[in-house]
Amino acid sequence: MLKIENLHCSVGEKEILKGISLSVNAGEIHAIMGPNGSGKSTLAQVIAGHPGFEVTQGTIDYEGSDLLDMEPEVRAQKGVFLAFQYPVEIPGVTNAYFLRSAYNEIRKARGDEEMDPMEFLDLMEAKLKLVDMDTALLHRSVNAGFSGGEKKRNEILQMAVLEPKLAILDETDSGLDIDALRVVAGGVNALRKPDNATVIVTHYQRLLNYIVPDFVHVLAGGRIVKSGGKELALELEAKGYDWLVEAA
């Protein structure tokens, strides 16, 4: 589904990703871990199409097409979704309107009929339950004044509504209390399908107890320095990153 090869990317003069290669197949869950500032969010943002990063080398293939050649909205319409580490506040645009616009544009791009507001509200009701979120948040501006946990749930709500093929969750577990963590993990698991894939960026083994990864990768200094199975996360929890970073 996703095939990243020798990806290098920079901001200005500064190279942040220094040759990343990673393959994600349908049905798989990958976890990406690694020290602060190692480039995890950068990788996630580059996949989503953030205009601030310049890809200087390498390729990303998504379902047989050149992902880097697509506008961010086209990527989303083709099923790529990024749950932001720092969700963006948009004062003046209600959550409901935002979601419906996104949902309908994606449907339109896929040649489906747009959904009318009433029908959409019904859909929302169901999705809100999935992430245990208060309906009132639908009628507030996107993320504006939301608590840290509410913002993260809102990301999962968006994911639940848009039903992506490839979901990348960037530290969606950070700042969540234990109950919220369980809700979010439950949401992610409920949305899993054999033809979908999920990439989870996290600092904590805890989330991986709920969402069990098939692969764990360690990103350090802009490179993947180690990959392994789910046991690798436990090992990292016990030993930290130093032994890997030094070895690399």
Partner: peptide
């Protein structure tokens, strides 16, 4: 970018 990343056209 956030809006586009949700599929909303430019």
């Amino acid at each position: 970018f956030y809006m586009k990343s949700r599929g909303i056209g430019a």
